[in-house]
Design a protein around this nucleic acid. Structure first.
Length: 576
RNA sequence: GGGCCUGUAGCUCAGUUGGUUAGAGCAGAGCGCUCAUAACGCUUUGGUCGUAGGUUCGAGUCCUACCGGGCCUACCA
């Protein structure tokens, strides 16, 4: 076993269950996480890549009601749909779990118990709005009414969208349920558990301060919450809902909390741990197999834990979840690096699930292979600011990068070889100055690529990868095997032999971005050797003279103007 | 209202601790090549770096104000 082998625990923010997600959520966490996981595996490291569906909370109940199904059934179905989509995009989760799993129930109750043991849970009696018609308590924003400030008649209970004034639901004039429209509301007393995050503020602050290499986006949001106003506030971690993890103290009942569940943002991050346990259970593995990823006293001390998420999820991952871990006073693994992303906009506006604006993941896979989306989204990942999807840009970028630069390189090399030498790596000739120059170029480019991938500089990594594809075309232009062949076939053979090996080199390097195309390339070359080119010279002679191959189908068909126009029209407004 | 992020060529974006003539890809123009998905290569036209001040020998880079975009603001997740 390689002594440089390291262990990487990678989690993607878990997507909410209430519907099919759009391209923005894919690039915000799952896709970059997958890129990183694939890269680390390719480098020979041991990887545990966990994702799941986030299934609890009011929106899930409402979505189920709208679909006319029991919420458990609805979630099970939607989990299946999301799992299928994840598979379609080639997301290489080691396990795609569910926050509603028995494992997560147990783990969530376990952590709550530990926090209570350590004096970090406080019971608070508070007043909340209850809707008799809906038979449920209403979260602030599910109460609508007239704004006392500006008179807007569809103000929400937390804030008026018209005048932006922050509100309490009780301040609304003529309040009504946003769910049923019922005005039969009353204020009731109810008891809830609060996580005393404030008690851990200094620990969290010191911990965040030490993370000088984290993205500014990540640390600035955390610090804002830590220092704003009176500092980090305690947070309610229970809700009056039917669907969720029942409130328990470990495996014991929690007196006075009957019929209540934990708040979705308390149990959702714990699912990262529980999901790993689901993985072990599903494979019939012992507990030690998941614990070695999560317990620093059981082997996780050499694990590097990286989380991926959109910026909207940062507070929960920098504060609440770490507070849960720290507050347990047990040696659970804390995150080492948080890679956060801005949002992807759609043609000048936002993607909108409610308005059906933008491209949803099931539709995306209907119209184009996963690699097209993976490449474009990753090479435009919103790392420094919100970024923009337009169909024109998507079409020109994908056609140029994938079809012209990479796909066409594969075509011209394999077809030229077939017509002049047959479908086998040709023999004869040897490397000269052009080859030495190319290999030098590849060597430095490879080092740059590896550095960017290691640092999760995704756009820069994509740029360098593309530059390496270009280097292949430049090499052919310089060596001109089609002209040289007429006078010196051996020389042409040497060029093509290296070029065919270059295709394998590209397939290996590109696999984290475009796994399907990479597989096609390897399969056309009739090789299963996908080893990382740690030794570049050896890597470029992997396919010896005489090794047979076949000319592959066109790797990437171009997006035509007609297609682009049609999709632009189809995805402009409401979801069909 | 407050906090943070952001505004660099037509488009999408890089620009390290402030240092000589501001970069890349795409799009546009020209040339070359003809093996290839009318693909590839080379050259090239585009920018008073949001605006106005300030600090400095020197500012895209630091400070202030203003204008525009975005996110968050703790009971949506």
């Amino acid at each position: 076993m390689d002594s440089r082998m390291a262990r990487y625990l990678i989690t993607s923010a878990i997507p909410y269950i209430n519907g099919i997600k759009h391209l923005g959520t894919l690039i915000g966490s799952q896709l970059p996480a997958d890129l990183y996981a694939r890269y680390m595996r390719a480098r020979g490291h041991e990887v545990m890549f966990i994702c799941a569906t986030d299934e609890h909370g009011t929106p899930a109940e409402l979505a189920a009601a709208k679909a006319g199904k029991p919420v458990a059934e609805f979630c099970a179905e939607m989990h299946g749909v999301q799992a299928q989509i994840a598979k379609g995009f080639r997301l290489s989760f080691d396990h795609f779990g569910r926050s509603s799993s028995p494992q997560n129930h147990a783990m969530t109750q376990y952590f709550a118990g530990k926090l209570a043991d350590n004096g970090l849970i406080q019971e608070v009696t508070e007043e909340q709005v209850y809707s008799k018609a809906d038979g449920r308590f209403l979260p602030d924003r599910y109460i609508e009414g007239t704004c006392p400030n500006c008179g807007y008649d569809r103000a929400r209970g937390d804030q008026c969208e018209n005048c932006t004034k922050q509100l309490n639901p009780t301040e609304l004039i003529d309040p009504r349920s946003a769910i049923s429209g019922s005005t039969d509301l009353e204020v009731r007393q109810t008891k809830h558990l609060y996580l005393r995050q404030s008690a851990l503020k200094d620990d969290l602050d010191a911990w965040i301060d030490a993370k000088t290499d984290w993205p500014v986006l990540t640390t600035s949001i955390a610090k804002k919450w830590l220092h704003d106003g009176d500092g980090l506030r305690d947070r309610g971690i229970t809700r009056d809902l039917d669907w969720g993890v029942p409130v328990k103290n470990g495996d014991k009942e929690w007196p006075g909390m009957e019929g209540k569940v934990f708040y979705v943002w308390f149990d959702a991050p714990i699912e990262y741990i529980a999901g790993t346990r689901e993985w072990a259970d599903a494979a019939g593995r012992p507990d030690a197999d998941w614990q070695r990823w999560w317990r620093t006293d059981m082997g996780a001390d050499d694990v590097t834990y990286v989380q991926f998420m959109g910026k909207d999820n940062v507070p929960f991952h920098t504060l609440s979840f770490p507070a849960t871990i720290m507050g347990s006073n047990e040696p659970w693994k804390l995150v080492d690096y948080i890679k956060s992303f801005n949002f992807l906009n759609y043609d000048g506006g936002q993607f909108s699930t409610s308005q059906g604006r933008g491209v949803f993941l099931d539709q995306a896979l209907e119209i184009l292979p996963a690699d097209y989306w993976r490449w474009w989204l990753l090479s435009h990942a919103p790392e420094t600011s919100d970024s923009e999807f337009t169909w024109e840009q998507f079409q020109t970028d994908v056609n140029k990068d994938l079809a012209d630069v990479l796909g066409n390189f594969v075509s011209r090399v394999t077809k030229f070889c077939r017509s002049k030498f047959g479908e086998a790596v040709p023999e004869g000739g040897e490397n000269g100055p052009d080859e030495i120059a190319l290999i030098e170029r590849l060597k430095s480019g490879l080092a740059t690529y590896e550095a960017h991938m290691q640092a999760m500089e995704i756009r820069k990594a994509a740029g360098e990868l593309r530059a390496l594809w270009v280097a292949g075309n430049e090499y052919l232009q310089v060596t001109q095997p089609w002209a040289v062949f007429k006078t010196d076939p051996d020389r042409a053979a040497a060029v093509i032999r290296l070029s065919l090996n270059l295709i394998r080199f590209y397939a290996v390097l590109s696999a984290p971005f475009i796994p399907d195309a990479s597989a096609s390339m390897l399969s056309a070359l009739k090789t299963e050797d996908d080893n990382w080119p740690d030794d570049l010279d050896a890597a470029l002679t992997t396919l010896p003279a005489g090794h047979t191959f076949e000319v592959p189908e066109v790797l990437f068909a171009k997006i035509t103007d007609d297609q682009r126009a049609e999709w632009q029209e189809r995805f402009a407004g409401t979801r069909d």
